[in-house]
Amino acid sequence: MIEIRFHGRGGQGAVTAAKILAKAAFYDGKYCQGFPFFGVERRGAPVMAFTRIDDKRILIRSQVYNPDYVIVLDPTLLDAVNVVKGLKEGGAVIVNTTKEELDLGFKTYTIDATGIALDILGVPIVNTTMLGAFVGATKLISFDSLRRAILDTFKGKLGEKNAKAAEVAYSILSEN
């Protein structure tokens, strides 16, 4: 079983990202769970969300404490929260930042998702871009399934734009 933890701020779409990733995994023929940290929802406050992916039915219903991957949607969180808390040995972090390199003590991929989102979507909402980056870096699921799950979630033009943003990030991290 693979466990993924998303760090974002309320309103940035971390919960939606966790659910889209679950659905994408499902389209890949896997079992999945996607859920928010059961907290108080406030705009701007640090929030977490989780996705579980497995080849067999997922029974565990507690929160995720030892993720395999961490996705950080907002670089300011690096100073506010210990984003690598509980991260498994050999795990990886994908961070939205303009910095080329970060030392978090784990394998770290960086991407300027805010730049991509502003360019393509016109707003600094990076959840779908970061999903593209995650899939590009890990190849844990197919990009086609991610694209399908994004188009399910956002209808029409908005869906296409989000899929495009994901694709740009996917290509950048695929090359690494």
């Binding site: 999945c32 996607g34 859920f35 928010p36 059961f38 997922i58 219903r61």
Partner: peptide
């Protein structure tokens, strides 16, 4: 509450 209500699964 939350454990089922807010969790997506197939």
């Amino acid at each position: 509450g939350f454990i089922l209500t807010h969790t997506v699964e197939p």
